[in-house]
Amino acid sequence: MSKAPYEPPTQSVIGQIVDAVLMLALVLVTLYLPLLLGLAGGGTTTKTFDNPTWEALGQNAAMAGQWEKLGFAPAQAAEIIGKRFDYEFSWVALAITGVVIIGYFVGMLRWSDKEYRDVIAEHFDDRPGAGRSGGA
């Protein structure tokens, strides 16, 4: 049995502007704000060196030579060398992140399928000759 085509409402100009602004706001709040406030990234530790030398920084002669060609003295290089990622992590945090990602995909796929059934029903059921083989 054919399904009546869905007729969407027409969105007003104001509504379109609000939607565009909402998307901008979403980008700014969820992606930009954490960066601005220093909440994102930063999983690092910093080791400090008193009066560093290339040896103390664990750099051999070849490494020291390249640092110097790049314009770095041991004191400047120490800031870079002393900064390391901290890979200590909480298994609970990893599990929560995994659940969020999997939940997002499962929810999206299930809801998409629900919407997709409407699309297919309307597209194929309302047209004469629907269901015939096509080709790309």
Partner: peptide, 26 residues
């Protein structure tokens, strides 16, 4: 790769997921 991003950039991974989840709800 998701685990790789989690190592060192876990907050950003979650922030990105929040963005797409809220956008999907919208």
């Amino acid at each position: 790769t998701y685990v790789a991003v989690f190592l060192g950039y876990g907050t950003q991974l979650l922030a990105m997921m929040v963005f797409y989840i809220v956008a999907s709800a919208w």
